[in-house]
Computed example of a mutant assay.
Amino acid sequence: MRRLFDDELNDLDTGFTELGMLVSEAIGKAVTAFVNHDRTVAQAVIDNDHQINDREVSLEKKSFEMIALYQPVTTDLREIVTILKAVSDLERMGDYARSVAQSTIRVKGNKRVAVIEQHISEMGRIVQQMVADVLDAYVKDDDQRARQIALVDARAGDYYQLIYRESIDQMRQDPEVVVGSTDYMAVAQFLKRIGDYVTNICEWIVYLQTGKIVELNPRNTTDTPTDE
């Protein structure tokens, strides 16, 4: 029985990592499509979102089945609970990647601002790297690294603030960029939310290793910046 449980738990771990890789790829493609104004790639991200959703449902179902069948306790139960919670966070990241792609479809023909798009590209790279790093931390059972990754979310927050203020400034200077700048702010917020969900997974990794529920970056929010 123990051997069967370990085999199924390994399959669950593998499925979680594969889902994370799909999400990371979707984020990277969505941001690149937005900055490059590539509606074809953006549409592909939208069309493939069902793969992320299907995998989330499959992993959740598998998790519940293992809990019911094996009735695991202590560390084994924490690992299944961690995956159960984290796959939901990954699916939501995928939703935000899709939202970025939808913004690419929507902004056709709008006047663009190169400097803001560069900041969005940089923010996207930070967030995508956070996703890759948190998956690695999970695989290596590294709760200390998870704590460090959560701190990186502050950099994503800084970019969000910067993009918001630059967008407001551009709208004041040129009414023709109002629609485009609104999308810049929306995309920045989508990326910021992805970073927040990475932090959630970091918290679950800490829980897995310590058995303690922690709140990393408790002051970190996606509230609209103050227009100073």
Rank of each mutant, 00 (worst) to 15 (best):
L59S: 02
E65T: 13
L9F: 05
Y96F: 15
D47I: 10
N36Y: 00
T75H: 07
L151K: 14
R98H: 11
T224M: 12
A188V: 01
N53T: 04
G180V: 00
A150P: 02
E176P: 02
T226E: 15
Q170V: 04
Q144N: 12
D136Y: 04
V178E: 07
T82P: 00
Q43I: 06
K212G: 01
T14Y: 09
K192Y: 07
V177K: 05
A44S: 13
I201Q: 02
R147Y: 08
K111E: 11
T32G: 01
C202L: 06
K29N: 13
T40W: 00
A33T: 00
V31L: 06
D227R: 07
T226C: 10
V31M: 01
Y159H: 12
Q43S: 13
S121W: 08
Q170P: 01
Q170D: 06
S24Q: 14
E228Q: 06
T226V: 13
V45Y: 06
R78G: 06
F34P: 01
D11T: 12
D183N: 14
F190S: 09
D143F: 15
Q43P: 06
G180L: 03
Q144S: 11
Y70K: 10
V41P: 00
L12D: 08
E122F: 06
A154E: 14
G180R: 03
R78D: 09
Y138T: 07
Y164I: 01
V127W: 09
L135S: 05
T17L: 15
E91I: 05
V45T: 04
D196R: 10
G109K: 01
Y184R: 06
